[in-house]
Write a protein that binds this DNA or RNA. Structure first.
Length: 287
DNA sequence: TAGCCGTGGTA
DNA sequence: TTACCAAGGCT
């Protein structure tokens, strides 16, 4: 099919698509990359991924690290609880699977921080099995090409069966179609300015055929970041990461933050999440 | 289940 | 400048 052919000639050369990456890090490398790629752009992930795998090349190596070390190494990738979940998942892989990232979707889904997308991405892109992999790019491609909508609906239980119905029979071809749908959404069928003139499936696209109508947008909007608790939490963690011994006297944490109530709420919630801990009058990354 | 959770690039 | 957007998942 045209989509698969396009992928084979036009896909970006990304680290986790290289055979030597799979040879060196196996499913662990794919799992780490997928954690980092959750809501974080490819270009920001690549250098962090390489540093992470150089330090912790296996689940067993990762499982021996402390939470403070993983949060520090996560640096400014954002959503730092992903670092804790990845660490927890590594421990679970060691405890439950002998240090080998499992192949079965159900076993993958049982790991911390692994949901429908990440579980199937590992099973398909590392182990080569046949499952539908649906991310935000794929949902947008399907919404346009099949439903004729300008933007996808929020994630739905129907997404997986729909993608499954489009996969070719062979495992290898199915994996390529999964990857190609994501790649098309990431590079051609983008959210803002889709390049339909370069699209390999333009002739089959319901949305293009209808004249690219604006069908409205039912996606959930992201809450404002400026002035949010998220911003305060981010500022606290940045201060801890940058401090000697990753610890700051409690009364000096965000001492000049404009909203003291919000600052204290941020500190308390970070402690509750296991991303910080208070000891001896200090706030520190979790030991 | 709808809200919440970081960070930085882009238009 | 403000708002959108980015290989999601948890509660």
């Amino acid at each position: 099919m045209r989509l698969a052919e396009w992928y084979r000639t036009s896909a970006r050369d990304l680290p986790w698509r290289r055979p030597e990456f799979h040879g060196e890090f196996g499913a662990w490398g794919v799992l780490v990359s997928e954690f980092m790629l959750q809501q974080t752009p490819v270009t920001r992930v690549i250098p962090h991924l390489e540093a992470w795998l150089a330090r912790w090349p296996t689940p067993t190596a990762m499982s021996a690290a402390t939470p403070a070390e993983v949060v520090q190494q996560w640096a400014n990738l954002g959503y730092p609880r992903r670092a804790l979940w990845l660490h927890r998942a590594a421990v679970e892989v060691v405890d439950r699977h002998g240090g080998i990232v499992p192949r079965e979707v159900d076993a993958l889904l049982a790991l911390s921080g692994v949901g429908d997308y990440t579980a199937r991405a590992v099973a398909v892109f590392s182990y080569g099995d046949r499952h539908p992999v649906v991310d935000t790019n794929t949902r947008r491609v399907l919404a346009r090409a099949i439903e004729g909508r300008s933007q996808p609906s929020p994630p739905s239980r129907r997404d997986l069966p729909l993608m499954a119905s489009l996969l070719p029979a062979s495992r290898q071809d199915a994996a390529v179609v999964n990857a190609a749908a994501m790649e098309l959404g990431a590079t051609i069928c983008t959210a803002r300015a889709p390049r339909c003139q370069d699209c390999p499936i333009a002739i089959d696209c319901a949305w293009l055929d209808a004249g690219r109508p604006d069908t409205g947008d039912t996606r959930r909007r992201q809450a404002a970041y400026e002035g949010s608790d998220r911003q305060a939490r981010g500022a606290v963690l940045r201060a801890l990461r940058g401090a000697p011994e990753a610890a700051v006297p409690l009364e000096l944490v965000l001492a000049d933050w404009p909203d003291a109530t919000q600052r204290d709420r941020a500190i308390d919630s970070l402690i509750a999440d296991g991303l910080a801990e208070a000891r001896d009058g200090l706030l520190a990354l979790p030991g």
